[in-house]
Computed example of a mutant assay.
Amino acid sequence: MPTTRVTRLAGKQRHDRDALDRLLDSSRICHVAVDVDGFPTVFPTAFARDGDVLLIHGSTGSPWMRRLARGAPISVAVTALDGIVVARSAFESSLHYRSAMLFGAASPLTGDVQARALDLLTEALVPGRLSEVRRPTSRETAATLVLGLPIEHWSLKVSDGWPEDDPDDVAGPAWAGVVPLTEAAGSPLPAPDLRRGVVVPSSVSRLTSPDGIAQPSSRQPSK
Rank of each mutant, 00 (worst) to 15 (best):
G172I: 01
V34G: 02
L125V: 06
T182D: 15
G61A: 10
P40K: 10
A115W: 03
G128L: 05
A176K: 01
A185V: 06
A80C: 13
P136V: 13
I151H: 04
K223I: 03
T110P: 04
T141I: 04
L102A: 04
T182A: 15
T110L: 13
R135C: 03
H153Q: 07
D18H: 09
P73I: 04
E123W: 08
D168I: 01
P180G: 14
R22I: 00
L194Y: 05
A184S: 13
F39S: 09
S218W: 04
A100Q: 04
H96E: 07
R14V: 10
S138N: 09
E140N: 09
V113Q: 10
K157T: 03
A171Y: 00
A10N: 02
R219T: 06
A191D: 15
R67C: 06
S26E: 07
G38C: 05
D82H: 14
R88Y: 13
H153Y: 08
D160V: 00
S99G: 08
V158F: 03
R98Y: 06
F43W: 05
L149P: 00
A69H: 01
R14G: 12
E132C: 01
P108K: 11
V178H: 05
R22L: 05
D169P: 00
Q13R: 06
D193S: 14
P136M: 13
V53N: 07
A124N: 12
P210K: 09
R17F: 12
K157I: 03
G197Y: 12
D119Y: 10
S209Q: 06
L181I: 12
R67L: 07
V34L: 09
G61E: 09
F103S: 14
F47M: 11
P2H: 10
P210G: 13
V146I: 07
L145D: 13
P150V: 07
P221Q: 13
L68M: 06
E152C: 08
D21A: 13
R196S: 15
D166Y: 03
P180M: 14
I84D: 12
R22M: 03
V85E: 14
G177V: 05
H31Q: 07
L145H: 06
G83D: 10
D112W: 03
S155I: 00
V6T: 01
A72Q: 05
G128A: 07
F43Q: 01
S93G: 10
W64S: 00
S94N: 08
P192C: 15
F39H: 07
A19F: 07
V170L: 14
P163S: 04
Y97E: 05
P188V: 10
K223G: 14
A142V: 01
V178M: 08
G172H: 00
T45S: 13
K12P: 00
L24T: 00
T144Y: 11
E164Q: 04
W162E: 11
A105G: 13
S99R: 00
H31T: 06
P216R: 11
E152L: 11
R206T: 08
L81F: 14
V34Y: 04
G58E: 09
E183Y: 15
S222F: 11
L120V: 06
D165L: 05
D166E: 12
C30E: 09
V199M: 12
D193P: 04
L149E: 08
A142G: 11
W162G: 04
